[in-house]
Write a protein that binds this DNA or RNA. Structure first.
Lengths: 213, 213
DNA sequence: TTTACTATAAAACAAACGTTTGATACACTC
DNA sequence: GAGTGTATCAAACGTTTGTTTTATAGTAAA
């Protein structure tokens, strides 16, 4: 049918825009990314952005996809292993989504940028993605260190874990200059995950000892 | 003398520019900060930026001051206490410079922004400030965990410590939305420093155990 | 065939940016 | 007092940004 052909072609340019936008946004951030560059990469006229979406900001919001991160949490919870193992698995899978350049980690990198340079969409991202996975890790931590821990100390433990992970992405411009040979291949990510996992579990045990002597 | 009067007046507008630039840059980052806003706050004509400095970028470079960070490292090393205590002291003082809004931490905040959104001046910052204090912490870590640790594992330990500290600044837009009541007053910074210190020392001990069973 | 609608294209729009210009007032030298 | 150099100012410059306009094909319905 001709209608189908037309629709699929329409969807094609729309999807091409989205795909290009994801790449350009994750590479340059929201501000530094230009509509002209996105359209150039998508091989699409500049007016298409405001035709299919209404603005650059709406295009940016449309590129966000919280599903991979949220399904990661659900997948981890399905196993019947202990909390320590679940935390190690989470750190591993989270780092994979955050650092692996070959995977479709663009989604995660795109949101990671928001932490440092907030845009008008940050509120939505915090509410729908960051808050849930912070809560997820908080539950794991509480299960590991026991229930006597205070809310403030629990929060600091969660921050310690995320801080270690995020530094590899936020600090990348610096890290690249400090250690030019460092590449985030699978082997390196595994090593990082192992380190952060052991480092954090030991830290959590220490916190647990402090609270329940 | 009239010459002195003239010079001091000149210096006054130059210094006013620098002071305003420090504030605006640390609040908005290099890109988002505008020359017009800086001049407005300094109560100075727009042309003054290119008159006294040659460009916005040179003005930015002139606002940088690595001394507080470097003297921090020297001060810590002067004491004859053990490496663990020195690390705890460093984390405390570093967080004070990084988070305290009342102190003159603008210098540190200004450089912290560079980690996430690099500017043409980043190379200088890494070379003159970040690399030295990374090396400083690396030396402390090596002293704590023993010499058998590999270079890669040493690097990850340093990243774990800095990652935990920097998250409170880089993640502030997110943290503010997650915990709107959280304020970085002296009491809170002390608590954060205590947490990161204990958490990290436990992590380092674990790393040392792994390497020297 | 005519009409209406959709998708795309080139061009122009208004705003904001860093930077430069040209003029003005002032202090100092001779 | 004429001439020189400096600091400041309002104004404009040229560029880039996101967005809008206007026009042009092509398709579907009447």
């Amino acid at each position: 049918m001709i209608t189908e052909t037309k629709n699929s072609l329409t969807e094609q340019t729309r999807e091409r825009l989205l795909a290009a936008a994801r790449v350009v946004f994750s590479e340059n951030g929201f501000q530094n990314a230009t509509v002209r560059e996105i359209c150039r990469r998508a091989d699409v006229n500049i007016a298409a952005v405001n035709y299919y979406f209404n603005s650059k900001e709406a295009l940016f919001a449309a590129t966000l996809n919280f599903e991979p991160l949220l399904t990661l949490c659900k997948k981890i919870n399905q196993g019947s292993i202990c909390a320590q193992e679940r935390l190690l698995n989470f750190i591993h899978d989270f780092l994979m989504q955050l650092l692996d350049e070959k995977e479709f980690s663009v989604q995660c990198q795109l949101m990671a940028r928001e932490l440092a340079e907030p845009t008008p969409v940050l509120g939505k991202i915090v509410q729908e993605a960051i808050a849930p996975i912070h809560q997820f890790v908080a539950n794991l931590v509480r299960e590991i260190v026991g229930k006597t821990i205070s809310e403030a100390e629990l929060r600091r433990c969660v921050f310690s874990i995320f801080g270690q992970c995020m530094y590899y992405r936020h600090g990348q411009p610096v890290i690249q200059r400090l250690h030019p040979q460092l590449r985030y291949d699978h082997k390196e990510i595994e090593a990082i995950a192992k380190h952060i996992g052991e480092f954090s579990l030991a830290g959590l045990k220490q916190v647990a000892q402090n609270k329940c002597p």
